[in-house]
């Protein structure tokens, strides 16, 4: 019986954010926005949910005198993503 998949990561935008951060380690808000093709509002909401779950941390800094938001995966987020990927593979190959 395959394990139930993490519902937080079964959302298109949240999974796009998490998988992008898995390969980039950290990313600026605009970079994430461009990658995910999302609106600022929607992206903020989803980042907030992931932050609330402890999957990512948000750092607000300044770059060239403009506010710059950086998102990073936390160790809990990395673990959640790895477990999600593992569970997905088990879903397709239950025998593994």
């Amino acid at each position: 019986m395959p394990k139930e998949l993490d519902p937080l990561l079964l959302s298109q935008l949240r999974l796009a954010i998490m998988s992008f951060l898995m390969v980039t380690r950290e990313a600026g808000f605009n970079e994430l926005k461009e990658h995910a093709g999302a609106t600022s509002g929607n992206l903020s909401v989803q980042i907030g949910k992931l932050q609330e779950a402890g999957y990512l941390e948000v750092e607000k800094t300044f770059r060239d005198n403009y506010p710059h938001t950086i998102c990073k995966l936390t160790p809990k987020g990395v673990e959640a993503f790895e477990n999600f990927y593992k569970d997905l593979k088990t879903y397709f190959n239950p025998g593994e």
Binding site: Q12, L15, A16, M22, N42, V45, L88
Partner: peptide, 24 residues
Amino acid sequence: MADQEERKLNPEESLRLIRETIDL
């Protein structure tokens, strides 16, 4: 893109999205 917020993925789509990001 309000619908994206609500867009739930099935396992196939999830796996595809992860692989596409890694390929990128």
